[in-house]
């Protein structure tokens, strides 16, 4: 273990760190938006669209991100659609994460108990009002654990971006290993970098889950 090597590599890791954070952030936001829209369309059982969404969810959840990225980055140019690596990463993470987030939201919405829905119907609320005032607020707090698990999962998935040469953390480390042939230092830094992102985040998410649960939940 050579501390000089570690020190010298810090600036490069900071660059990779920024890329990982930035792509995770926009990818997760994209995934949350796609997921929320899909779960709402499925909740209201919009004809045909629901079927298309189900197909999307199954395709996205049951195939690896790596192949999804290869498709976007290497195969799409053949049919005339050339996208930058970063943009492919964003699209890939949104495509993958959208289905996971949609399932998390739907799980929450479907988890709202039938008796709560009956109580809403009994005071004359329409399906839309019921959704807005009862099912969504309660469903969102129910879906929090799954949402935060997905957030962690998606951040880890950005490591796969290294296969299309996006200079995020893993790619940075692998590049450095390739150039200087020192694996211990760079791998250690890589693990620590992920720990710096994920440990505080999972603590924050756990606290948030508890807040949501005790803030507006429980009969």
């Amino acid at each position: 273990m050579d501390t000089n090597i570690i020190q010298a590599a810090i600036p490069k890791f900071i660059e990779g760190f920024k890329v990982t954070i930035w792509l995770s952030l926009i990818g997760i936001i994209g995934a949350l938006i796609v997921g929320l829209i899909c779960s709402l369309l499925q909740y209201f059982k919009v004809p045909i669209v629901s079927k298309i969404i189900s197909a999307y969810i199954e395709l996205s959840r049951n195939t690896p991100l790596l192949i999804q990225l290869f498709f976007l980055y290497y195969a799409f140019p053949v049919i005339g659609l050339k996208l930058s690596a970063t943009f492919c990463g964003f699209i890939g993470l949104t495509f993958l994460g959208g289905s996971y987030m949609s399932e998390a939201f739907s799980g929450g919405f479907n988890g709202v108990s039938n008796t709560q829905i009956d109580a809403g119907k009994a005071i004359g609320m329409s399906r839309r009002q019921l959704a807005r005032y009862v099912v969504f607020p309660q469903g969102l707090s129910l879906s929090m654990p799954a949402l935060s698990a997905n957030i962690i999962f998606l951040i880890k998935e950005t490591s796969i971006f290294s296969v299309i040469a996006i200079p995020e953390l893993t790619n940075t480390a692998l590049d450095l290993i390739g150039i200087y042939y020192r694996s211990n230092e760079y791998l250690l830094m890589l693990v620590i970098a992920y720990a710096i992102i994920l440990i505080p985040l999972s603590i924050v998410l756990t606290i948030l889950e508890r807040r949501v649960r005790y803030g507006s939940f429980g009969n």
Binding site: S113, A119, I123, G124, Y133, S216, F217
Partner: peptide, 28 residues
């Protein structure tokens, strides 16, 4: 037709007041 259930089923995400005024405001 008002209805009251075995499991009370107040809306757990709303305060007592919001539970009661929800119907009069949104429905009526």
């Amino acid at each position: 037709i008002g209805m009251v259930f075995q499991s009370y089923d107040l809306f757990s995400n709303l305060t007592v007041l919001e539970n009661i005024v929800l119907g009069p405001i949104k429905v009526q």
